[in-house]
Design a protein around this nucleic acid. Structure first.
Lengths: 295, 295
DNA sequence: AAAATACTTCGGTTTTTCCGAACCCATATT
DNA sequence: AATATGGGTTCGGAAAAACCGAAGTATTTT
């Protein structure tokens, strides 16, 4: 990654804004030589002429205009940063940033998070979704307080991350009424060649599913493959195929989507983890999440 | 205007990204003390703690997370600026940045601009709209090549701007068929109390109009007041009121909108100007615009 | 309790920033 | 044509920062 020298960029920007070195030097209390030299250095580092001389004056070149547009944005952001920092938000609440692996069922995730909101102090919740590895990166850099995932963090991550099991559950297969009726008949053989909506390749649930099917010699046909569990359910609603969900969330999913149970696979175990950046938990809201292992 | 020290911000950003001074110092080839000190200075200048110590490590505070979001954007822009500057050439055309006063009729403006596109070399046209004063500022700082306006630039502007008259024209009043039929009957007395769609206060056309009405003791009722001439016409289409347009554009407006003429006021003169930053015109496309005065 | 990890402080070197003075060039004025 | 005037540039040096290595301190993990 390569950046412009922001001091030089500032000189360029104020000069372009003011229309001349002279005007800029007066308005911003820099000397002409300073501006002139810094602009020259910026031009060198960008390897482009930003100004051209047109009759004793400086005029922006094509590249100069483009650079100016960037500079406008950059300095607007910079000045906003300063302002927003001064005005400390009066909301003196605890804030909790949770990363939720996008493969995780949202309803289940929410049940994990809920205890964090029942604290004496008010908690401002920030939820971010993403794939596990990017969430872990944000976690270890303290941009997230805790990550919910269906897999434990790699053992010797550096900086380290600590996983705690929140729940373990078997698996159940659900589908909309019509499809469920058909598939229930001779479960589990009926799943062979049946349309399934898979979670994304490489996720813990997908691995477990593949193994389970393989062990039984079943080969469902992949009707769809969705990262997001809500998306899977939307597809299932439409009868695209059946889905696998953790048994502990079957009830709430049935209620919400009107699915019916095709069958269950309790020997296919899934676990859910809360991952933190330190073993000792200081954040009270995170502690609340960890103190209530559901299973 | 007040900015953060971008070097300090960089230190903060890389550290937040890396999760620790140590990691950041390795990845970005700075020493820990450098990062540590610069971050401290940033915190002082922003008057906020960006990091807090939570067990021997640094964790972002609330303000730190916000600042980090700004920093992400700022450095993304910075790096983009560098990249886009390197990849310069490709479009080897002349580029022409025209500022068009938003009160100006678009069709007429276009007729002024068109000659610029009939040059031997290809021209890449950039049109910006705005109020005259902001356009003039952009012009004198060479972010625009020429400004089209219905008023000449103030005489002793610094830096100077030079106006050249492109066209002069009387005024005509137009309205949709129904309203025009009614107003045509006893023009111009019929305009008294009639609903008019005014251009914005303070524009040259508005001033001329006001004077013309005042001289004749007419008081149309302002049904609307629009900055943008296209907006006026849209309103007029709807029968909200009648509009005043330059006589030279009557034909094209009638054709386009199906308006009918209520009457004309040839003694109410309007002029249109091209304003440049320098008397001597070097830009061939601008020269083309100036060489074809329509009236 | 020891070991490991991670942040700070300190003193000094190297770079960068920044300025005043002098110089140059185009345009506008006389 | 000669001369202001309004810019821009070059030069040398002073002041301020950026930056580092070494040593010091604190906390967590084992």
């Amino acid at each position: 990654m390569h950046f412009p020298n922001f001091n030089h960029l500032r000189s360029f920007w104020v000069t372009a804004k003011a229309g001349s070195l002279r005007a800029a030097s007066q308005r911003w209390h820099f000397s002409q030589p300073t501006l002139s030299e810094q602009i020259k250095q910026l031009e060198e580092s960008l390897d482009t002429a930003l100004f051209q001389k047109v009759g004793g004056r400086l005029a922006l070149t094509e590249a100069g205009r483009r650079a100016f547009d960037y500079a406008e944005q950059i300095f607007a952001l910079g000045s906003e940063l300063v302002e927003k920092s001064q005005a400390e938000p009066s909301v003196r609440g605890l804030s909790l940033a949770v990363g939720v692996a996008d493969t995780l069922p949202k309803l289940l995730s929410w049940s994990f998070i809920r205890p964090a909101l029942n604290l004496p102090q008010p908690v401002r919740l920030i939820c971010r979704e993403g794939d596990v590895s990017s969430l872990l990166e944000q976690l270890t850099t303290f941009r997230l307080d805790v990550v919910l995932s269906d897999e434990a963090a790699p053992a010797h991550l550096n900086p380290p991350a600590f996983s705690q099991k929140l729940a373990t559950s078997g698996l159940s297969f659900l589908a909309n009424a019509a499809l469920a009726k058909k598939l229930r008949r001779r479960y589990p053989e009926s799943l062979d060649q049946a349309p399934i909506i898979f979670p994304a390749r490489g996720t813990a649930m997908r691995v477990a599913l593949d193994k389970w099917f393989h062990d039984r010699g079943l080969q469902p046909t992949a009707a769809a493959e969705c990262d997001d569990s809500a998306m899977q359910k939307a597809a299932a609603l439409d009868g695209v195929g059946f889905v696998a969900v953790a048994s502990i969330e079957v009830e709430s999913v049935r209620e919400r989507y009107g699915f019916e149970v095709v069958g269950s696979a309790d020997d296919c175990q899934l676990s859910f983890y809360a991952i933190t950046a330190m073993r000792k938990i200081r954040h009270p809201a995170v502690a609340a999440i960890l103190q209530k292992p559901i299973v």
